[in-house]
Amino acid sequence: MIIAERKPIPEIQSFVAGYHKVLVVGCGTCVAVCLAGGSKEAEILTNELTLSPKTAGARFESRTLERQCDMEFLSELDEQAAEYDALLSMACGAGVQLLAERFSRIPVFPAVNTSCIGVNRSVGWYEENCRACGTCVLALTAGICPVTRCAKGLFNGPCGGTNITSCEIHPDQPCAWHMIYERLAAQDRLQQIMEISPANDWRNQQPRTIVQPGYEERTSALKEQ
């Protein structure tokens, strides 16, 4: 799931300074689950901005959509959006962009920083586990991502900097390759650590468009329309 964090209020205020009527748009998916931008957070931000002397005089309202990364849900705002002179999106970067695309005449600002793809450890506690590298090696690494969790992002390891359980960069930084070693050994497939993963082609980080297998023709047909 995508994890986001609310931006500091002064930064948000600097975006909306000078606008008179602003709609805070919550998103009811990832950012709601990670407690950064669901309807409660949207309501809280609205109240904070209303209270703040810096934004006194402006009017803030809130509305939460199912998902901001789907045009169909954004269309629910079509009529309402025109009433505002700025939109403050609490969605991840993807949602903010689609919202800005849908309502391109109105300034759209982000209210959260999109941090990572992570897991939920407990209420309000998340850990980054995936960096969307596009070349998943988890099959070879016992389900522990070396790109994300090795401080050096090494596809092959461990390196000479392992202090058994921790990394040379800091005693508090666990060595991901040590964890990989331990888990592979426990599963009796330690030989897999010897398999060399080729260097990732990081050129794949250019803006990616993903079309699932079997949907190529459908996508082309849609693009032609």
Binding site: G28, T29, A32, L35, G38, N120
Partner: peptide, 12 residues
């Protein structure tokens, strides 16, 4: 209709 099954309530 509003629940996104984030498990916050379950955990709290």
């Amino acid at each position: 209709g509003r629940c996104v099954i984030c498990l916050t309530c379950y955990r709290c």
